[in-house]
């Protein structure tokens, strides 16, 4: 019988504490945002598709030497790197750098293997399209647009 009343007491008390918790949540400010109109900053570690890092002190604006390690290492075979020899320039000049994001598994091997540290993950997350071809990104063009 004593258990009966102590149960009512502890139960009632915990119910009141619960009400207090929700009341405090009620008067605290809202934490969500109205998404398309307001955005919160994404975490710097987010993995979007890969992109070439921009460096302004080089004429080509990027540091890729067309070694092809990223394309060879990619387990999904989604990177295409091509270059050509040009007059008066040491080494090769990058002409094609595309990534097929529909296949990319975001494993990060390309970023890891690049000996020139010319690649990184972008922080683009609003990706939507009607065709697969829209996700074949041309990274050189992207770099120029930036």
């Amino acid at each position: 019988m004593s258990g009966y009343f102590s149960e009512i007491y502890t139960g009632g008390k915990s119910l009141l504490i619960g009400l207090g918790v929700t009341f405090r949540a009620f008067i605290k400010p809202v934490v969500t945002v109205q998404y398309p109109r307001e955005k919160i900053d994404v975490s710097p570690n987010i993995r979007g598709h890969i992109e070439l890092i921009k460096c302004n002190d080089i004429e080509a604006k990027h540091d890729c030497r067309v070694c092809g390690m990223c394309a060879k290492n990619c387990p999904c075979n989604c990177i295409v790197v091509e270059g050509e020899k040009q007059e008066g320039v040491k080494g090769k000049v990058l002409t094609v750098f595309t990534v097929d994001f529909t296949k990319c598994s975001l494993c990060g091997l390309c970023v890891e293997t690049c000996s020139r540290s010319a690649l990184r993950f972008s922080n683009e997350y609003e990706l939507a399209g009607f065709t697969r071809e829209e996700f074949h990104f041309d990274l050189i063009k992207r770099l120029e647009e930036k």
Binding site: T22, A25, F26, K28, P29, V30, V31, T32, Q34
Partner: peptide
Amino acid sequence: KIAARIQRRWGPM
């Protein structure tokens, strides 16, 4: 609205 505020959302806006 109340459900939203208790869950710290905006609710219908």
